[in-house]
Design a protein around this nucleic acid. Sequence first.
DNA 1: TTGTGTATATTCACTGGTCAGTATACATAA
DNA 2: TTATGTATACTGACCAGTGAATATACACAA
Lengths: 212, 212
Amino acid sequence: MSETGRSTRERILQAAGKLFYGEGIRAVSVDAVAEKAGLTKRTLYYHFRSKDDLIAAYLEIRDQPNLALFKRWFAEADGDVAAKVEAIFRNLARSARHAKWKGCGFLRTSVELVNLPGHPAMVIGRAHKKRVEDWLCSVFEDAVNPQQARQLARQVILLLDGAFAVVLLHRDPSYMETAGAAAAHLVRGLMPPPRKSIKAANVRRTIRSRTG
Amino acid sequence: MSETGRSTRERILQAAGKLFYGEGIRAVSVDAVAEKAGLTKRTLYYHFRSKDDLIAAYLEIRDQPNLALFKRWFAEADGDVAAKVEAIFRNLARSARHAKWKGCGFLRTSVELVNLPGHPAMVIGRAHKKRVEDWLCSVFEDAVNPQQARQLARQVILLLDGAFAVVLLHRDPSYMETAGAAAAHLVRGLMPPPRKSIKAANVRRTIRSRTG
DNA sequence: TTGTGTATATTCACTGGTCAGTATACATAA
DNA sequence: TTATGTATACTGACCAGTGAATATACACAA
């Protein structure tokens, strides 16, 4: 029956998500996923062809919501594009304070599969990061010289992924804010100067007149 | 016999290094390391108490040479501090073009041990990154407002580790150069302006005379 | 309504293999 | 004879994946 089938599949994916993200794909056995989902391993193998399939599905369903979260944080933030980008990092820093936070599932999976570059999960991971980069690029095209948008998007991605790695290593979310400040600085460096000089907040950001 | 013992230990560490770095610590069995070292597992266990011990030793011996390499690349580069930092990224980009390159062993190990924050290898990894950060900090203290040196060092570290992750994911070393450009930009943004204004070359690299 | 076939969904119990670590013995040198 | 170093062969646990049987539900014919 398709309804029961779908919900079983979802229960498996939910269990796999928690375990794979929380402990890593190699540290989690198929038996553990099945047990967490409340069914037998054989049933799991009825719904997924292999563990690799399950891993790919685990990342697949995280792609869209992940990007949507970034977009929401960006949209809901006040200020210019630089401030909106910085807001993404600030929100991530907040997430990173939860004990269950374990960095970026895409990056971590790519590390665990480092010698299987063609693995479906690797393909999905690359596509996800590319999608985030493309979105940032489109955002920057409206704010800076479009010729520089791609490079800027990549630099922000580098700071983002660097922060994922460093915060995970040191378990210190403040690196996420440091990355956000750097990202905002890079964006501002390419933005045209505002019409009205603003006495900018008590934060450490200042406006720079390029004419000198 | 201490001499044979030491060289045996070194053979084990060499084999472990190649395998752990090349395939990841979880993907490599103790048997595989022993075989690569040309001895039996039992002999390996005579020289190392456990696999975890071996993993820690594998990282330990990479700490100093790794930092030394950064220092050498920095010292041998021409130009101002920003250019010298960028040179580190350029050299890393060159390394990343080799097929055997698999990113940063410290970061990758920390991902594989994500749920064992007290693991000796994690402690060593954190110490290593901290040492690089401290070195960068000391470098920046002579080039920018010392109060901003720590933050700047962290931002460069974030770009560095981000580049490790992103280049590994996409297998595209050009991200390393993009990260270097961002790092140089961040450094320059905090450096005192040079005496003579320069009409900046077609590349983004310029030579600066500090004497003016 | 009852019986029968069929596709879906699930279970138990198993296989073949790997892995970290060890018990035991043997060799060599001080 | 005692300490050091090496080898063979093993243990117990775990793990990805499977074989064979069973349960459920729906379709359609009698």
